[in-house]
Simulated assay, not measured.
Amino acid sequence: MSKRCQVTGKCPVRGKSYAIRGIPKKKKGIGLKITGIKKRRFQPNLIKKRLWLAEENRFISLTLSVSALRTINKNGLQSIVRELRKKGEKV
């Protein structure tokens, strides 16, 4: 299973994690210094969801981000499925 939302297209992105030490200038220190940088990945908030498609009288399974669930609630499942089929995705 790929870590990609079928509706919004959200996927993991790359970033960095910083190790910081020192006393901030606000607290009368010399300032914060970065002592190490590590690469990391920001993962999307994905869930596998089984939704009832009333027009076809069946369940469909989709890998969705939680923000895509809100989009489905707003626009309706049928319009989202129509867009997915236009893109050529199997639903």
Rank of each mutant, 00 (worst) to 15 (best):
M1D: 14
M1Q: 13
M1C: 09
S2W: 12
S2D: 02
S2E: 13
K3P: 06
K3Q: 00
R4D: 09
C5I: 03
Q6N: 02
Q6P: 05
Q6Y: 06
Q6C: 09
V7K: 04
T8L: 09
G9E: 10
G9R: 05
G9W: 01
K10F: 05
K10C: 12
C11D: 07
P12K: 03
P12G: 05
P12D: 01
P12I: 05
R14P: 00
G15Q: 00
K16R: 03
K16L: 09
K16W: 04
Y18F: 11
Y18P: 00
Y18D: 01
A19C: 05
A19R: 12
I20E: 00
R21I: 03
R21Q: 06
R21D: 04
G22K: 00
G22F: 03
G22Y: 02
I23F: 05
K25M: 08
K25D: 11
K26H: 11
K26W: 09
K27W: 01
K28D: 14
K28T: 12
I30W: 13
I30E: 11
G31T: 07
G31V: 07
L32K: 06
L32Y: 11
L32C: 06
I34G: 08
T35H: 02
T35A: 00
T35D: 02
T35Y: 05
K39W: 03
K39T: 03
R40T: 03
R40H: 07
F42C: 01
F42G: 00
Q43I: 02
P44Y: 10
L46C: 04
L46S: 04
I47W: 07
I47R: 11
I47A: 10
K48I: 04
R50A: 08
W52F: 15
W52T: 12
W52Y: 15
W52K: 08
A54Y: 13
E55Y: 12
E55M: 15
E55L: 12
E56I: 00
N57M: 14
N57L: 14
N57E: 15
N57Q: 14
R58K: 14
R58N: 15
R58I: 14
I60T: 09
L62M: 06
L62K: 02
T63W: 02
L64H: 11
L64K: 05
L64E: 03
S65N: 03
S65L: 01
S67P: 00
L69E: 14
R70C: 10
R70Y: 05
T71Q: 07
I72K: 11
N73E: 10
N73L: 04
N73T: 01
N73P: 09
K74Y: 09
K74P: 09
K74D: 13
G76D: 15
L77V: 13
Q78G: 12
Q78F: 10
S79M: 06
V81G: 12
V81D: 12
E83V: 09
E83K: 07
E83Y: 08
E83L: 08
L84T: 02
R85S: 14
R85D: 01
K86R: 06
K86Q: 08
K87L: 08
K87G: 05
E89V: 10
K90H: 15
